[in-house]
Nucleic acid binder design. Structure first.
Lengths: 334, 334
DNA sequence: TTGGTGTATTACATCGATGTACGCTGGAGC
DNA sequence: GCTCCAGCGTACATCGATGTAATACACCAA
């Protein structure tokens, strides 16, 4: 069995509490005492038992990150950014993948969340009130705009505005018949709904009618579904000169399908995505997209979460918006 | 404060130990008693305190996964697969990103590993004995072939053979001057070294000399470094008709740089990668690659780890090999 | 009746660190 | 000389579940 605090205390000739104070950097420890304790720690190769600390103090130093999937590049990059941001605060991240609405609910009620100090939740897209009834017991920050019972800090980008920006960009480059890939009729308040809303609002303002034939559903937003959706659009026969895919993976899949069909991007069809994942700038042609600022989102979320964890009070309800940026690349060139 | 086991016990009219037995599915609990306890649990909305269980039993139900980075698509997909496999065993995954050799060492010595039941470690590439001195205190499965002190179960693909297969494929499609992207002179036993070895062995057998001008270093293996490496190869002036990139991200970056230089893939230069990440099948042209079987790797690793965790004995030293598969796509077509 | 076996349950110590409340010391201030 | 306080340390209870060993009970065979 490895050494425990009592062994260290005995060797250093002090009480266990003093050892604890040294380890936790508490004030009122004489320099001399600190030295002795540190020497004893080294001598015994003592390692703090986190379970015990956790039990006694109620903190674990672990925060959870719940995302739908890690195979979607955006979430993988978000996870990376979150892990990095958490580390700066001395926290580690336990990643949970929700994958479906049912699993998401199950997770939120599971005892697994008990030993987590806080949770960053990126909910699935689904109907509006899906999560409002959940009562969360840990400090939580929600990414996106879904209402989640008990959680009142939201960090997000204005996805509707970002989608509007992407759509406007297509209009500005002279496109008029803009198809959409990634809609979800089942979603009333999530990313799919908001992005579609942004698209619609711009077209309406421009006086362009929305055409059902130009709207393709896809779920989840991964390459293969983008390719499939595009093939269906093409088979449907409706004419279009641009595609707004609701994320980069869909866009890349769509570009692939366009290429297969002998259509040129951006010559015949312009394509734009959302997310600015790494793959987007290295595709051929490079993909125009909107960067939702996932780096900032991760940092902001972790900061907001640690604040909640420390203060121990109910946080001020708020919604933090992170800036987004249009990246015009080859896929939408005139 | 939420209910604890004692409250449940009082309400059900039994001892806390009996409650514990019910929760943990131990035998010798009368059906009637079980019912009463379960009713009490429901009534009080009792949730087990994992910290306490962890302290007492020494198990946490959490396994660690240490990978260099999540922005590399391969690791993200590996992480996804691991989380899924762990879940089947009722385990959750705490993801650590190492990023550098120093951080990797720091992690392996950190008390954070204390509250983990087991670790799946995908080491950084580095000199041979870098990690042999580390003494791991938790059951560990190593992905890849690095010797890590104390850990004796390795799950990996034969990377050298996989690289050889990729190289042979290029030869079979009529290429002779094959450039390499992703070499690392600092690495003597990691992925870079093994993949380079496979490349070299095939060329040697084919009687083709290795040319220094055709070897480009890159670290880490992400798109931008693939593109940069390719630009340097082109600037160097050496002629080549194929590129073997040590992973798909590098390959995609390289394809992008080739396109920028007005070179056609596969017409002028064939390109092959390794990993079979999602992006590879949707690039234009689609990328030939070797699938290292990450799904199987994840499953196997989790299985080997749980076995170690349960048996509580030193595992049988072994090396499990997972099959790999060549996927010939457009980027290497004649 | 006694003893033996199998089932069901309990009392109690225990895991290891930390919060609380308090004790001791030396020196400044009157 | 005495109080008072800041600075430093300590004893002890405590967090909540679980392993151990012991006990209670029923049932059956000898």
């Amino acid at each position: 069995m490895s050494a425990k605090m009592q062994d260290v205390a005995r060797l250093a000739g002090v009480s266990t509490k003093t050892v604890s104070n040294v380890i936790n950097g508490r004030p009122y420890v004489a320099a001399e005492t600190r030295r002795k304790v540190e020497a004893a720690i080294d001598a015994l190769d003592y390692k703090l038992n986190l379970a015990a600390r956790n039990l006694r103090s109620g903190r674990s130093g672990v925060i959870g990150l719940a995302v739908p999937s890690l195979s979607v590049a955006y979430f993988a990059e978000l996870a990376e950014a979150t892990v990095a941001a958490a580390e700066e605060q001395g926290l580690v991240v336990q990643i949970e993948r929700t994958g479906s609405v049912a699993r998401e609910r199950a997770l939120l009620n599971s005892p697994r969340l008990q030993h987590i100090d806080g949770l960053i939740l990126n909910p699935m897209d689904h109907g509006a009130e899906e999560l409002e009834s959940v009562q969360l017991s840990v400090p939580t920050v929600v990414l996106g705009d879904h209402a989640v019972g008990g959680a009142v800090v939201h960090v997000s980008t204005d996805q509707r505005a970002a989608a509007a920006l992407a759509t406007e960009h297509l209009l500005l480059t002279g496109r008029r018949r803009i198809a959409v890939i990634g809609a979800r009729s089942s979603d009333s308040r999530g990313s799919a709904a908001l992005r579609f809303d942004g698209y619609r609002s711009v077209l309406e303002r421009a006086g362009i009618p929305i055409e059902r034939d130009l709207i393709a559903e896809a779920d989840p937003w991964i390459q293969i579904n983008g390719a499939t959706a595009m093939r269906e659009l093409l088979r449907g026969g409706a004419k279009f000169d641009a595609v707004f895919a609701f994320n980069d993976s869909l866009a890349l899949g769509a570009m692939r399908a366009l290429d297969d069909a002998g259509l040129h991007v951006p010559g015949d069809v312009a394509v734009i995505g959302i997310d600015n994942t790494a793959e987007a700038s290295y595709s051929i042609p490079s993909l125009s997209t909107v960067d939702l600022g996932r780096q900032r989102i991760a940092e902001t979320a972790v900061a907001a979460l640690t604040e909640q964890m420390i203060s121990n009070e109910r946080p001020v309800p708020r919604r933090v918006l992170v800036d987004f940026t249009l990246l015009a690349r080859e896929s939408t060139r005139r």
